[in-house]
C-alpha cells in the first residue's frame, strides 16, 4: 500500500485510525450533500401530491394526499400540448442536430482544406455575439412564413438545428482522438473519403453520436429565451418551460402552484430516465470535451 509510507510518519495517530477519521468526515459531507441536493426534488414531489390547497404553504408534508393535481393538468390546462410540443422538438432536434454537428466536427477534425482555420476562427468570434439577437429578424421572417405563435415549435426546430454546426467542439475533440492511421490505411486500400467516413469512422463513434443525440434531445426542454420569443404569448405554441413559467407569474399563482409541481414531476420523469440511461455517454462527452476544448 502506498499510503503506508506517509501515514507511518504521522505522529500520534495510527495509519488506520487517521484514515478512518478522514473517511468518516467525507461520508458526513457526502451525506449532507445528498440531502441538500435531493431536498428540492423531495419537496416538489410532496407538494405535487398535496390536496388540501393549491397555493404555497409553510410546511412540506401534505396533510391530505392524492393525485388531483395531476388529473387537473391533463383535463383543465394546455399542459399536454406543451408536453407534446417539447417532445416533438426534442426528437427532431436530436436527429437533425446530430447530422449538422457530426458533419461539421468530422470535417474540421479529419479533413484538411483551404479556409479551415479561418472557418474555425470565424465561428469562434460569431459565437461571442449574444445569439438571442438573431431572433429579431428571424421572428419577422418566420412570422411571414407562419412559423411563429401556434406553429412556434416548427420554427424553433429550424432555429435550434440550422446553426448547431457551431457547437462542434466536443465531438471534434472526440474525432481528434481516433488514430489517423485508420484513415490512411483505408485510403491506400482505395476507399473514397465518403467511405472512410461512413464505413471506418462512424462505427467507431457510437459514444459521441449518442452524446450528441442526448444533448439535442435535452436542449428544447431547457430552452426559455428563444421559445418564449417565438411563441409570442400563444398558449398552443409554448414549450413546457415557457408555459409553466407563466403559471408562476400569473396574478394569482396560488391556484397553480401545486399544479406546477405536478407538471414538473411529469416532465422530469421521462427526461431524467433517458438521461440516466445514457449517463455513461454524457460523462465521456463532458470529460473529453473539457480536455480537448
Amino acid at each position: 500500500m502506498k499510503n503506508n509510507t506517509s501515514s507511518i510518519k504521522k505522529s500520534g495517530l495510527g495509519a488506520k485510525a487517521s484514515r478512518r477519521i478522514s473517511n468518516t468526515l467525507i461520508y458526513i459531507v457526502l451525506i449532507v450533500m445528498t440531502v441538500v441536493w435531493l431536498f428540492p426534488y423531495f419537496g416538489i414531489v410532496l407538494e405535487s401530491l398535496r390536496m388540501e390547497s393549491t397555493g404555497r404553504v409553510d410546511y412540506m408534508i401534505p396533510k391530505e394526499w392524492g393525485f388531483g393535481n395531476y388529473e387537473y393538468l391533463f383535463t383543465n390546462t394546455n399542459f399536454p400540448t406543451w408536453f407534446i410540443n417539447t417532445t416533438i422538438m426534442g426528437l427532431a432536434t436530436a436527429v437533425l442536430q446530430t447530422f449538422f454537428i457530426l458533419s461539421m466536427s468530422y470535417t474540421l477534425s479529419r479533413l484538411r482544406f483551404k479556409g479551415r482555420k479561418f472557418l474555425m476562427n470565424f465561428m469562434l468570434i460569431l459565437g461571442m455575439f449574444p445569439g438571442f439577437l438573431t431572433m429579431i429578424l428571424i421572428y419577422k421572417i418566420f412570422g411571414d412564413l407562419g412559423l411563429t405563435h401556434a406553429n412556434a415549435p416548427f420554427g424553433l426546430i429550424i432555429v435550434y438545428c440550422a446553426s448547431s454546426g457551431m457547437g462542434y467542439y466536443v465531438s471534434k475533440g472526440f474525432f481528434d482522438t481516433i488514430s489517423k492511421s485508420l484513415d490512411e490505411a483505408a485510403r491506400i486500400d482505395g476507399a473514397t473519403r465518403w467511405q472512410v467516413f461512413y464505413k471506418v469512422i462512424m462505427p467507431l463513434s457510437k459514444p459521441i453520436i449518442i452524446y450528441t443525440i442526448l444533448m439535442g434531445f435535452m436542449a428544447p426542454w431547457g430552452d426559455f429565451m428563444l421559445a418564449r420569443f417565438l411563441a409570442a404569448g400563444d398558449d398552443l405554441g409554448k414549450n413546457v418551460a415557457v408555459g409553466m413559467w407563466g403559471w408562476l407569474q400569473a396574478t394569482n399563482p396560488s391556484t397553480m402552484y401545486t399544479r406546477f409541481c405536478a407538471a414538473g414531476v411529469t416532465v422530469s420523469i421521462p427526461v431524467t430516465a433517458v438521461f440516466l440511461a445514457l449517463q455513461k455517454y454524457y460523462v465521456e462527452g463532458v470529460t473529453g470535451g473539457a480536455v480537448k476544448g
Binding site: 428540492p40 414538473g264 427526461v271
Partner: peptide, 16 residues
C-alpha cells in the same frame, strides 16, 4: 445523486 441536477430540466428545479 449529483447527476440528477443535470438530468432534471433546469427550469423545473430553478423555478421551484
Amino acid at each position: 445523486v449529483l447527476v440528477m441536477t443535470i438530468a432534471i430540466p433546469q427550469f423545473v428545479s430553478l423555478l421551484y
